[in-house]
Amino acid sequence: MALSSHIEELKKKHSALSHQVEEAQRAPGTSDAEIAEMKKQKLRLKEEIERLSTATA
């Protein structure tokens, strides 16, 4: 897989996770721990995207 397509996949996952976090925050049954874990995953994806993007620049 080309690096640019890998970065695009990561961006898609980040966006999807962002929507999941928003929905979870609106849902009364979602625990703070679940939301925090999703936010951590989102941050890890963002860091990976940035790392790979600077590697190609």
Rank of each mutant, 00 (worst) to 15 (best):
A2M: 11
L3E: 00
S4Q: 15
I7S: 04
I7Y: 07
E9W: 02
L10T: 13
K11S: 00
K13A: 08
K13F: 09
S15T: 15
S15Y: 15
A16V: 07
A16K: 08
L17T: 07
S18D: 08
S18V: 05
H19Q: 04
H19D: 02
V21P: 10
V21T: 15
E23T: 06
A24E: 01
A24H: 04
Q25V: 10
A27R: 05
A27D: 09
P28M: 07
P28W: 06
P28N: 03
G29E: 12
G29A: 10
T30E: 15
S31I: 02
D32F: 03
D32N: 07
A33Q: 12
A33D: 11
A33E: 13
E34N: 11
E34R: 11
E37P: 00
M38K: 12
K39W: 06
K39H: 01
K40N: 08
K40G: 03
K42S: 15
L43W: 12
L43T: 14
R44C: 05
L45Q: 01
E48H: 05
E48Q: 12
E48G: 02
I49C: 09
I49G: 08
E50T: 12
R51L: 08
T54D: 00
T54P: 00
A55M: 10
T56P: 01
A57G: 12
A57L: 12
A57D: 14
